[in-house]
Each structure stands twice: as structure tokens, then as C-alpha cells.
Nucleic acid binder design. Structure first.
Length: 453
RNA sequence: UCCUGAGUAGCUCAGCGGUAGAGCGGGUGGCUGUUAACCACUAGGUCGUAGGUUCGAACCCUACCUCAGGAGCCA
């Protein structure tokens, strides 16, 4: 396998007779020579290749347009011009694959909307290339974070028959013919089945066996959401921890976010510089503040009082017992705290049945971690571990014990206090890259009306 | 799904009632090493779709489609 360009660019001495392969990002021609900027995807920076016009293979140059793939042999020498440390003085140029004039990517800025219409080519751009290199490193950092803390990675099912109540509409999975009136008992699984909206319930089963677990996989929501922060298919990280209460859960969530931001700062410097320059000027300062300053915590009740006293003319009234609206969350994270903030202990009426009821009888041990610009990046709770209280909550939510029998069993046999949360991977990526649309941090976005690739 | 805005060359946009424009990208030529190079010339468009108003519509009106921003739902 060929040495990648990021390794070659990190050379500390000139080298001769080097062969590199990659795609042409730009070509600049003059009478005596042509300059190709070559990239192989291994890093943001490209390698400048100098092709002398006198070279026998220089007659290939007219066919070498932006997007073409080439193989170049030459000597790596210190570049006499400013702009790059090294350049490859070509001795031989070979054209591997042409890219003709219809190649849509140019050496200029494109709008994100246009790039979404060519999702198969956009990872070749600077912006999306950087996003997806960061995405890969963040995914690895997430596994590192949990593995280093003794968590086991559990592969929860993608197809499931129980909805994690409150999580949203589900996609039906069926082998019945369209329009069939056959009952679900005739279907492949003998019951209605769906794409998972969360691995939490199964995660709880494993936390109550292995202690500390996490899932990291795709989840699906059939909501007709048309926003920059929602996708029908997205990736979620869901730790679940036995012998853990809400306070420890919040601490874990905060550490998790801070750790990943630190990885961005320490391991993605080249990409961070690019995002700071072309996507979001305040990015680095915001990330630095995130790792330097402790996260704030505000109880839901205090948050309501604070919003009411703010004197802000909110469009939606602030009422205890109602969910916080986007404008409220934005005020809390972006103006009141000016940084990440965790809101905890929400009214039980607006939260799912599995959250642990507090002693006040009207709130549950729930928490949402909000970050500026994005809003909720994590949602979690301590789970109800008391059998009778859980059954009562299920009745109140109109759920049958039969449908959740296995879940209730976890409270019947060796029940323990436990807690967990879900972190939206794409929202995290938006936070650390400054990219403002979820469709631009996921390789092939699935949103209402869109599954083209 | 609701509200607002926008659809003009491959891309980014200007033109807003009187014969369709620029920059980039492509082609040709030029240029002592360029950095989104530069200079000159050149090809490229049923102005989102369908109706309507008008002597005349890219421009005004209606409907639909698509996209964006905001809202709801949530990760």
C-alpha cells in the first residue's frame, strides 16, 4: 500500500524517486511548468506537484483537470516558494482516471445545498473531507472514552418490537406485501416490528448484568422533521450504568462532552483551523471555554423561575409543567450561561414512564445537556428501579405490563439504581466543527423525502 | 406539518414590464514558480413547472414543485 500524503508531507528530509497517487484538486499552468495540487484524502493539506513542460509525459496535462486521478513519480524537495514546505518535482506523470469538464467540483467555494445534491462527490471537497475525517476520529475517541473507563460495548438490535416510549414515530419493518390486510401475526416476526429509536431498554438489561455498558449505533425516527438539527437516521451513543444516580449520570455526561471537545482541540488541529477560518469564526474560543470552564447545572424549576424573571418577551409563555421551548433553551445556554448547561429534574408529566420519580412526587430524575447554537446534545435520566412505582407509571402512561414484561423483570430480579443518557453523535459533530446543518456532518443524510444514495 | 424567503449558464449571482449579463469552471492563445495565479479571445440559457394579466413578462398575479431559514417533534 502506498505511503499516504499526510506521512509524506511530514517528512523531515528530501526524498528521491517517490511515487504518489491521488486526485487533482487544482492545476495552475504557466509556460515552463504546471502546478498540480494533489490530495489522497489522508489529510486536508495537499501535495504540490511540479510538472516541467519539457517532461515527456507533460503532454498529458491538458487531460489532467480538477478531479482527475493521477500517479506521479518524482523527487520530494523543499519548495522554493511560500505556501508549502515540500513539493514533488515530477519525473513522470501518469493519468489514472480522467475527470472531464462536467466534473461538478471547482476550485472555489460551493454552497452546502449544491454539495448535498452531489453527496457521492462532496467528501472530496475541503469542507466535507475535513468533516468526515473529524467524524471518524470522534467515533474512535468515543470508544476510547468508554473503554478506558471500563464500559463494555453492547450491540443492541436495530430491529425491535418495543418503542422507547416518548422517542418519536417509528419506521415499520415488514415483509408483508404493500396494501396487505394480513394481521401482524402473519408478518416475518409474528408481530409488528420497527427500526429502533433507541437502544436504551436493551441497554438497561445489559447494564444490569455487565455493570457499565454503552451502545453506539444508528437510530431511526419517522418524524416529519424539517430542521437543520434532525435526521431520520442518525447515530447515538447511549451509556447505561448500574449503581448510578442522576448526579453521577450528569457528571459522566459532562465529562463525556468535555473529553470529546478536548480531542477536537488536541487531535484535529488542521481541521479546526479550517473550520475556524471558513465555517465559524468563534469556534476555537468556544471549544476552549468548554474544556476550561465547569459546566453549569440548573434545575428545571429554577430555570423556569429564571426565565420568568428575565424580562424577555418570549413567544411561548414560560409555565411550570410545560416543556422548555427552543427559545427558552437558547436563552439559557447562549445568554444566561454562555456555555454548556445541564437542566435537571423535569416535571414527570412531560417525560417518559421509565424515568425515576423524585420524592416531591411531581418531578423525575431527568436531565438535558444543552450547548450554545445547537440546543439539546444529550438527554438522560436515572431509571425507575422500584417495581411498584414503575408499574404505576406505566399505568399512568397507558402502557400494558405485558408488552414490557421483560423490562419489568429487570426490577423483579436484583433491581439496582441505574442511569444513562443518549448523546446525538451528529449534534456533537456540529458542536465541534461549527457546521450548522446536520445534513453536512452525516455521509448520506436521510431526511423526509431524501434517501437517494 | 406550519410561517417566511428564494428558484436566471455546469457553479455563484446581477438584471425586477421593452432584443438575456458578469465572475468562476470549460476551450484557444499568451505569460520567468504558481498558491481560489494572471491577461486576451471564445463556446455555453424554452430565466423551476403550468396557467393568467399585458401590445409586450425573467420581472406582475394564481397554483404546484424544489430548496433554504425559523417553529413544532427530539438526539
Amino acid at each position: 500500500m502506498q505511503e499516504s500524503l499526510d506521512q509524506i508531507l511530514a517528512s523531515d528530509a528530501p526524498r528521491s524517486a517517490l511515487t504518489v497517487r491521488g486526485w487533482v484538486r487544482t492545476k495552475r499552468e504557466s509556460k515552463a511548468c504546471a502546478f498540480l495540487e494533489l490530495t489522497d484524502g489522508s489529510c486536508f493539506r495537499g501535495l504540490q506537484v511540479v510538472v516541467d513542460a519539457a517532461l515527456p509525459t507533460a503532454d498529458l496535462l491538458p487531460q489532467v483537470l480538477t478531479g482527475a486521478s493521477v500517479e506521479v513519480t518524482g523527487d520530494l524537495v523543499a519548495s522554493p516558494a511560500a505556501g508549502q514546505k515540500w513539493e514533488l518535482q515530477a519525473t513522470e506523470l501518469r493519468l489514472l482516471g480522467v475527470a472531464d469538464a462536467t466534473y461538478p467540483l471547482q476550485k472555489k467555494g460551493h454552497t452546502p445545498e449544491f454539495l448535498r445534491s452531489i453527496a457521492h462527490l462532496r467528501p472530496r471537497t475541503n469542507l466535507l473531507g475535513n468533516v468526515f475525517r473529524v467524524r471518524s476520529r470522534m467515533a474512535f475517541a468515543i470508544h476510547r472514552f468508554f473503554q478506558e473507563r471500563g464500559f463494555f460495548h453492547v450491540h443492541t438490535p436495530v430491529i425491535t418490537s418495543n418503542d422507547c416510549e416518548g422517542a418519536g414515530e417509528m419506521f415499520r419493518v415488514t415483509t408483508l406485501k404493500p396494501g396487505s390486510s394480513a394481521p401482524p401475526t402473519e408478518d416475518f416476526f409474528g408481530r409488528p416490528a420497527y427500526l429502533t429509536v433507541s437502544g436504551q431498554l436493551q441497554g438497561e438489561a445489559f447494564a444490569c448484568a455487565l455493570g457499565k455498558i454503552y451502545t453506539f449505533g444508528p437510530t431511526f425516527r419517522a418524524e416529519n422533521s424539517n430542521t437543520a438539527r434532525h435526521a431520520a437516521e442518525f447515530w447515538m451513543i447511549e451509556p447505561e450504568i448500574a449503581f448510578c444516580d442522576l448526579r453521577d449520570d450528569m457528571t459522566m455526561a459532562e465529562e463525556n462532552v468535555r473529553h470529546l471537545v478536548r480531542v477536537m482541540l488536541e487531535e484535529c488541529g488542521e481541521e479546526l483551523e479550517f473550520f475556524g477560518r471558513l465555517v465559524d469564526k468563534g469556534l476555537e474560543a468556544r471549544l476552549r471555554q468548554t474544556v476550561d470552564k465547569p459546566f453549569e447545572r440548573i434545575s428545571y424549576s429554577d430555570a423556569v423561575a429564571l426565565l420568568q424573571k428575565s424580562g424577555r418577551p418570549f413567544e411561548h409563555p414560560v409555565v411550570w409543567g410545560e416543556g422548555l421551548q427552543t427559545e427558552h433553551e437558547r436563552y439559557l445556554a447562549e445568554e444566561h450561561v454562555r456555555g454548556p448547561v445541564t437542566i435537571h429534574d423535569y416535571p414527570k408529566a412531560i417525560k417518559p414512564f421509565y424515568m425515576r420519580q423524585n420524592d416531591d412526587g411531581r418531578t423525575v430524575a431527568a436531565m438535558d445537556l444543552l450547548v450554545p447554537g445547537i440546543g439539546e446534545i444529550i438527554g438522560g435520566s436515572q431509571r425507575e428501579e422500584r417495581l411498584e412505582v414503575l408499574l404505576e407509571a406505566m399505568r399512568a402512561h397507558g402502557l400494558s405490563e405485558q408488552d414490557y414484561g421483560w423490562y419489568v423483570d429487570l426490577r423483579r430480579y436484583g433491581s439496582v439504581p441505574h442511569a444513562g443518557y443518549g448523546m446525538g453523535f451528529e449534534r456533537l459533530l456540529m458542536f465541534v466543527t461549527g457546521v450548522s446543518n446536520i445534513r453536512d456532518v452525516i455521509p448520506f443524510a436521510r431526511t423526509p423525502g431524501h434517501a437517494e444514495y
